[in-house]
């Protein structure tokens, strides 16, 4: 399992990277941490003719607390974000989800932006970005644009970047006051790819009612999906077992679930319902925020 040949570029600045993308377009791929890309290259399922490494662009490795959220540059490694103090305090859902991404060595090298751009249907970070309405900052030699997460993810392994664009950064909004969050997933193993997963952040009013819920689920078919109908239904309610169960049921009917050899579609749908319900109950009870359901 050796990759096919490619041309290698390693510009030392963002401008240099964007120039390469302008020149090579679809033939080029960005190499950041490589944790999603290189396995596919080794299997020869991807054979880019030009590989543009951004690993020498120090300007992209930032984790920055900005006014309206935590910005992670294209080279911000998952492990660093997971252990960033601001992230831990103000973006708990992101940090919880990162615990489930790959294995330790993968997170040491893998980047947050890389995982988002890869858009795997069972990846944790797209679900977080969707739930939180993250800003995806796309850059090209022609300029920058901010793409809302819901417009960034097009489908399984598909994003809306143009061939000359890269994901320069992502900005996750901070969790509001009186909010709690929960990321849970379940797989056939206690570690590794999930069958389904849920990213949830709930903001409570002073009366203890849910004032705003943000919910995204992944079920294997297509990319993770935001469950806006469930969010609307939860707004204003006191989250109890009955409400949580109903929210689970409702969400399960909304999402795309895959049936494959890991789990059939009916199971995935039922699992989505249970995970949503459990996530809501955890959030409502303030129990262990990053507990895995197994």
């Amino acid at each position: 399992m050796k990759p096919a040949p490619f041309e290698f570029r390693a510009p030392t600045s963002l401008d240099g990277v964007l120039e390469e993308l302008r020149e090579h377009g679809e033939a080029a791929r960005i190499l950041a941490g490589g944790q999603s890309l290189v396995p596919l290259m080794n299997l020869r399922m991807l054979q880019p003719s030009v590989l543009v490494s951004i690993n020498h662009c120090k300007e992209l490795s930032y984790i920055r607390s900005e006014e309206d959220g935590l910005a992670c540059g294209a080279l911000a490694r998952q492990w660093d974000v997971e252990h960033d103090r601001v992230a831990m305090e103000r973006c708990p859902l992101l940090v919880q989800a990162l615990h489930h991404v790959g294995a330790r060595s993968n997170r040491n090298r893998g980047t947050v932006c890389g995982s988002l751009a890869h858009a795997d249907p069972l990846a944790e970070l797209p679900a977080v970005a969707l739930a939180l309405d993250a800003d995806m900052i796309a850059a090209s030699s022609a300029g920058r644009r901010v793409v809302p997460a819901r417009e960034f993810f097009v489908g399984a392994l598909e994003n809306s970047l143009r061939p000359d664009e890269m994901l320069e950064a992502v900005r996750f909004p901070y969790a509001p006051a009186r909010s709690r969050s929960c990321f849970i997933e379940l797989g056939n193993r206690n570690h590794g790819f999930a069958i389904a997963g849920v990213a949830l952040q709930v903001t409570f009013g002073e009366d203890g009612r849910c004032s705003r819920a943000r919910l995204a689920v992944m079920g294997g078919e297509n990319i993770a999906r935001r469950a806006t109908d469930t969010e609307t239904a939860l707004a204003g309610s006191v989250i109890d077992e009955a409400i949580a169960r109903e929210a689970g049921r409702m969400t399960a009917s909304l999402v795309d679930v895959a049936g494959d050899f890991h789990a059939d579609a009916a199971y995935r749908r039922e699992l989505v319902a249970v995970l949503v319900e459990r996530a809501l109950m955890q959030v409502a009870s303030g129990a262990a925020l990053n507990a895995r359901s197994n």
């Binding site: 290698f8 390693a10 490589g34 590989l51 690993n55 330790r104 060595s105 993968n106 090298r109």
Partner: peptide, 17 residues
């Protein structure tokens, strides 16, 4: 270990390091 942290050496290109 790459720069002090564990990493999968099958997922890196020598030229990039």
């Amino acid at each position: 270990r790459i720069d002090g942290r564990t990493a999968r050496s099958c997922l890196h290109f020598a030229v990039a390091l």
